[in-house]
Nucleic acid binder design. Structure first.
Lengths: 253, 253
DNA sequence: ATCGAACAGAGAGCACTGCTCTCGAAAGGA
DNA sequence: TCCTTTCGAGAGCAGTGCTCTCTGTTCGAT
């Protein structure tokens, strides 16, 4: 029994302990209560995270605020890191959602790309600790990669889609004035990316997008982590301008 | 007495407690021992940091390894965060040093800029936890800004100098094909930067450098923090290529 | 409806952390 | 020599993550 339980936790995480609705929608009262309390714990932890950051997130503190014993929380999350992982997934989904919403807008590729970047930054500024949790220093060794992989991809795919649309509309200049030789390894990296993202863009354009992408997150990280403290005063104006540059570069400018 | 001591700690930090050599170089045995032990603590803490990261750095653990009581360490560093701040300053100096060394090389601006970026990345890959400490999520609220400001600037100034040299040699195209209107706030930001860095480059070029700069650190952070995990296999080739693109962009390409 | 198994909560406890306080020993300058 | 400052050690406090054990409840199958 104990071994089976341990294995379940190892393979499927805490969700494995939730009783699945048995075909016909009949969630037992206990399962409902469990799902609710799980959400409540996550919500409370998210609040604590927003206030004090990941380092200050204490399982005992959320248990106290929820009026339960600290040991009871372990029925829902097997460890503090698992709780953090759940919050990471939520954060990925949140930023992915705002990016996708911004990507659906109309206009030129440069405009849409800028809109996506601005949306990401706005989310990051509004939720700095969530941003840090996701795009800052990884928490322990690092968080579970499998569970976070697909939510993490959403935000990037949104941007790639914008560029793919722009390329289809002829807004992307594929001719290179001064071609840089692309290393063989990087070529195969891009080939793999094309398959994984199901997006047909030439190496040249993909690399331009990645350049712009690292600029977006590099600039946001610099802003939030204080590396532009003595340089920039109006962060939003600076960011919009730089993202515009990056988007023009993607278009081939 | 107590109040005076507290004020000294608040204003000057732990260094205020070190006895200054009284004019003529006569460091007492105690002062020497103190300086040595301070370095020893820092070195030991740095080792722990390299192994387990900032989160796993325990004052008690370094005290144990040094064979002293944990309370004795507080004679040298008033808190764990101050110890971390000392490590942050050392890390800034370390990365600044390798960047400056790389910047002294000869060749075109693109070559030198790439060399600086490659040196930074090599340092980051060799000391990932130090990099995370400096360019990742800020540790508590945040570290002392005054003490870290000037070491932090070294690495950026090295890159700016490379570009300034390139501009002096006529390697930077100042004419803009498709000029992007620069916001007034950003214009004054750049004006301030010109004064602070004592480097005379037009807004256009400074903004290009900042774009490349955020690309450099954005790419390194993406690599070290696992955001390119499923995309790139040969990180060094990818980085070199992207930095080359960024450097060409700085040159006006 | 009953019974055994699974589950949920609470409490005690372990090992660890940062940090403070107090005390005695050592070193420094007068 | 004496007196102040410094230093190291130990005990102790409040807090942490996590485990274990014990009780009461709920669930599903008989």
């Amino acid at each position: 029994m104990r071994e089976a339980e341990a294995r379940a936790v190892l393979t499927n995480g805490y969700t494995a302990r939730m009783e699945q609705p048995t075909g016909s929608a009949a969630p037992t009262a206990r399962a409902r209560a469990r799902a609710e309390l799980t959400e409540e714990i996550k919500a409370c932890a998210s609040r604590h995270l927003a206030e004090q950051g990941a380092a200050g997130l204490s399982l005992r503190a959320v248990a106290r605020e929820l009026g339960m014993a600290s040991s009871a929380v372990y029925r829902y999350f097997p460890s503090r890191d698992e709780l953090l992982t759940a919050l990471i997934i939520d954060a990925y989904d949140a930023v992915g959602e705002v990016a996708e919403a911004a990507a659906t807008g109309k206009g030129t590729m440069v405009k849409r790309f800028t809109a996506v970047a601005m949306a990401i930054r706005a989310w990051a500024v509004a939720h700095p600790h969530d941003y840090a949790l996701v795009y800052g220093t990884p928490v322990p060794g690092y968080a579970a990669p499998r569970d976070t992989a697909s939510p993490a991809a959403r935000v990037s795919l949104a941007a790639l889609q914008v560029v793919a649309d722009g390329a289809a509309a002829g807004e992307v200049d594929v001719s290179v004035r001064r071609p840089m030789p692309i290393p063989k390894a990087t070529r195969s990296d891009m080939a793999r990316l094309r398959v994984a993202a199901s997006i047909d863009l030439p190496d040249e354009v993909l690399l331009r997008v990645l350049l712009a992408w690292t600029t977006v997150f590099g600039t946001i990280s610099f802003e939030l982590f204080g590396h532009l403290h003595t340089v920039v005063e109006d962060y939003e104006a600076f960011f919009r301008h730089q993202v515009g540059r990056a988007a023009l570069h993607v278009a081939g400018g």
